[in-house]
Design a protein around this nucleic acid. Structure first.
Length: 526
RNA sequence: GGCAGGGUAGCUCAGCUGGUGAGAGCGCACGACUCAUAAUCGUGAGGUCGCGGGUUCGAUCCCCGCCCCUGCUACCA
């Protein structure tokens, strides 16, 4: 019996090229999605783009393009980046798609029907900054300009908008978040609780300025067309992509989402406005909102203006996507901030990948070739398997808690055990004594089994290299199907590689190993 | 300013409700081995556990004060 697992990422604002921050989130979500596929869950992994807003329209104008041309181009670049990083999403949602627009309007209408008091109109007057797409308070205005956009002039705007009565939901939201199960990690839940305790303000649901967006389905009575404001435009992507407003079929199968993976900076929208919208619409709430931290560069948050950036293409081309994915997942906790530096990357690459794991594979395969004619000998399970089982179980529970970095710690405990085991058994000595033939074979078979286990549990992190290792170990075809290329997702699964209890069953006896190129070659030192 | 979290070996961090000599990984030094990507295995150096008080037979872990860092303090997303 397979469970369904619907995982989403934040949809990225189509206002620039993909960067390390975007990549970290997508890689993290991808690792979780692949892990669940490995377990045999029926996975739906959705990511995409948020493509409306005045800033998009303006940058398009600057480029001499229509807004649609502009977002088409940016969406293409994001999808290229995700392909290069091996992000195995099932669907790429775009808020400019017709189906999304239909879904958004339907959701708003549904809220009008089910919770008639949730929307109301209010006239708002103030200085409006186009750069921020927001009204500014006196403190935010210096010399008649917005402090963040000193080159743009502010506009005095009076408009009648639709508001959403978020304040009305404060009690229910507090209960929801205080449970500790809806919003994680706990530190983020605590921040939102304190926000609730300060009192929730109602939020805009529409803007009167005709803009690049979805027309709000109802007018405010002053004749001005209303455009759906960002929350009501972007957040519903999680349901429109699974068929809403049709609540049968796909929607019934996938919704509610099992987890929304988001950055900690947009926690409040996902843990307050989104559930309030769903309550108002009388729709089920997602099971979990997971707010990850940020990847810092040299201790600073990356930013284009400060020159703190990292070119994704460059990052991938240096060692390949797999080591890059591994490094980010190993070095940056998924529940807090972490640091990226090439210095650290090289350390990790050399010690963890090349020296420890890559070399363990290399020496094991070489010995099976040398001492056993390249055929994996038959042998009973031994202590190595038993000790590894503890680490594999720990890996499993860490993955279920959305902490891939901790899961990797346990896999590397297994890797270290493997290298110790080789030295302790010293197969090269056993090979010289015909009386120890049995022990030699038991040793090498145990090492092959261990590598298979490691390749399987690491495949969500490094799908390409793990497939390569399994291939070198002589694993049959169904074992090799762990790559997550865009055109060959591992869906459902034919072979239960990782059971519901985290245990694996397979028999490597008789596999023909073939040593190939190094899994993690060291670069020329210069 | 308020609220929350944190300051432990060169680096990244573990240390549950206070108690035999404060730990891991990486890095470093020395030794062993030779199957392997000059990889691996073993041993070791070494830290006033942010600062100052207090409670206690005894505190890195409790209390008070101070210093420093980070996050949140709502409509860019």
């Amino acid at each position: 019996m397979h469970k369904k697992y619907y995982i989403t990422t934040a949809i990225d604002y189509a206002n620039g090229d993909p960067h390390l921050g975007h990549a970290f989130e997508k890689i993290g979500a991808d690792v979780l999605a692949r892990y669940h596929r490995l377990r045999g869950d029926d996975v739906l992994f959705v990511t995409g783009m948020d493509e409306h807003g005045q800033k998009v329209a303006q940058s398009a104008a600057k480029e001499g393009r229509t807004p649609q041309q502009q977002v088409d181009e940016i969406a293409r670049r994001f999808q290229e980046a995700w392909a290069a990083l091996g992000i195995s999403y099932d669907r790429f949602v775009r808020t400019t798609s017709e189906s999304h627009k239909v879904g958004v309007r339907a959701l708003i209408e549904r809220i009008f029907e089910r919770s008639p008091d949730s929307f109301y109109t209010k006239t708002y007057a103030g200085w409006y900054c186009v750069g921020c797409e927001a009204f500014k308070t006196d403190e935010e205005i210096v010399d008649g300009k917005c402090v963040l956009h000193g080159t743009r002039t502010l506009e005095w705007v009076e408009e009648r908008n639709w508001f959403f009565r978020l304040s009305e939901y404060a009690d229910r939201l507090r209960t929801l978040i205080a449970s500790g199960e809806f919003l994680q990690p706990r530190s983020r839940a605590n921040e939102i609780l304190s926000l609730i305790d300060q009192g929730l303000d109602d939020v805009s649901a529409s803007r009167a300025r005709a803009g690049w967006g979805i027309p709000f389905p109802r007018d405010t009575g002053d004749g001005e067309p209303q455009t759906t404001y960002v929350w009501f435009d972007a957040l519903p992507n999680y349901i429109t992509e699974v068929g809403f407003p049709d609540t049968q079929g796909e929607f019934a199968k996938w919704w509610p989402a099992d987890v929304h993976i988001i950055g900690k900076d947009i926690t409040r929208f996902h843990s307050l406005i989104w559930p309030a919208m769903l309550i108002a619409a009388e729709l089920p709430l997602p099971r979990l909102v997971w707010a990850h931290g940020f990847v810092l560069l040299g201790g600073d948050r990356f930013s284009k203006s400060a020159g703190v950036t990292l070119d994704l293409q460059d990052a991938v081309s240096r060692y390949g996507a797999d080591p890059f994915r591994y490094f980010l997942m190993r070095e940056v906790p998924f529940d807090a901030d972490g640091n990226f530096s090439w210095e650290r990357f090289e350390e990790r690459y050399n010690s963890d990948l090349a020296n420890a794991w890559g070399n363990l594979a290399s020496r094991t395969i070489a010995m099976v070739e040398k001492y056993c004619g390249a055929i994996v000998p038959a042998a009973e399970l031994n202590d190595l398997d038993a000790l590894d089982a503890v680490d594999m179980a720990a890996y499993d529970s860490a993955m279920r808690e959305n902490l891939p970095n901790r899961a990797l710690d346990h896999v590397w405990a297994s890797v270290a055990r493997g290298n110790e085991y080789v030295d302790r058994q010293a197969p090269w000595k056993l090979a010289k004594d015909p009386a120890k033939r049995g022990e030699l074979e038991a040793t090498l078979a145990a090492l092959v089994r261990q590598l298979v286990r490691q390749a399987i549990v690491l495949s969500p992190f490094m799908p390409g290299r793990c497939t390569e290792l399994l291939s070198q170990l002589g694993a049959p075809a169904e074992f090799l199907n762990v790559d997550g290329k865009m055109d060959s997702h591992l869906r459902g699964n034919d072979v239960e590689r990782l059971g519901a209890d985290g245990k694996m069953t397979f028999d490597a006896t008789g596999w023909r190993v073939a040593k190939g190129a190094s899994l993690f070659p060291k670069r020329e030192t210069h």
